[in-house]
């Protein structure tokens, strides 16, 4: 009855590691509903990033099924993935990953064809209106990450994926950035998955999963 945005069923992914076959994701299930902010924690190398890559339509699982907004996308050919990423998924990367040659506003308008009014609105909500005409090189780390958050919410994507959004920020700014994500997720009724190892921001998430040895457990 509730709006399921992301539904990952029985995902298995393994890598060849020398002679051995290393299972990174061992029959993982994950469901995220609209308006739900999910955090995944775990030690590095536990498979968080792989899970995010699979959810983000950049990596294919060995087996399992992914549904996005009710559509089984894992069956689609790779060629269509780019379109799906563009239309259904908003990304927040580690280290913001803004394009150095676009002003803050242009990161949304030129790249994602977001109209000017929405850019204004998003920048207003994130308290960065004054940065619209600035290049990333002239912003602080926290400001850049907020522009990156605005970019993730700029398209009409229902799923937001955040990869260690606090990694390059100090604890205060990191917490602030995650608060922003949380606010936008609830306000715009999006589904969000955040991968982090920063335990201090976990209280902001609606649901917390722990990842260990390729298994995902709710905590």
């Amino acid at each position: 009855m509730t709006n399921t945005v992301l539904n990952m069923k029985d995902i298995v992914k393994s890598y060849r590691d020398g002679e051995a076959q290393r299972t990174i994701l061992n029959h993982v299930n994950l469901t995220v509903r609209a308006g739900e902010f999910v955090a995944i924690v775990g030690p590095s190398g536990c498979g968080k990033s792989t899970l995010l890559n699979i959810a983000g339509m950049m990596l294919s699982p060995d087996s399992g099924e992914i549904e996005l907004c009710g559509q089984t996308v894992s069956a689609l050919p790779k060629k269509k993935w780019t379109r799906i990423r563009k239309e259904m998924i908003g990304f927040i990367f580690q280290n913001h990953q803004l394009l150095p040659y676009l002003k803050a506003g242009e990161q949304l308008s030129v790249l994602l064809k977001c109209d000017g009014q929405k850019v204004q609105e998003l920048f207003g909500e994130l308290n960065i209106e004054h940065l619209i005409d600035q290049y990333p090189a002239r912003m602080s780390g926290g400001e850049r990450q907020r522009v990156a958050i605005a970019r993730a919410f700029a398209s009409d994507a229902n799923l937001i994926l955040a990869d260690e959004p606090t990694a390059s920020l100090d604890s205060e700014r990191g917490r602030h950035a995650v608060e922003m994500i949380q606010m936008e997720v609830h306000k715009r009724n999006r589904a969000a998955v955040m991968v982090t190892h920063d335990e201090r921001v976990l209280d902001l998430a609606d649901k917390i999963y722990k990842m260990e040895d390729g298994k995902l457990m709710e905590s």
Binding site: T82, R83, K86, E87, Q97, L99
Partner: peptide, 14 residues
Amino acid sequence: EKEFGVLKAVGTSM
């Protein structure tokens, strides 16, 4: 390369 990676990730077609 990093910029192209980002562009591709956010759904810019080849």
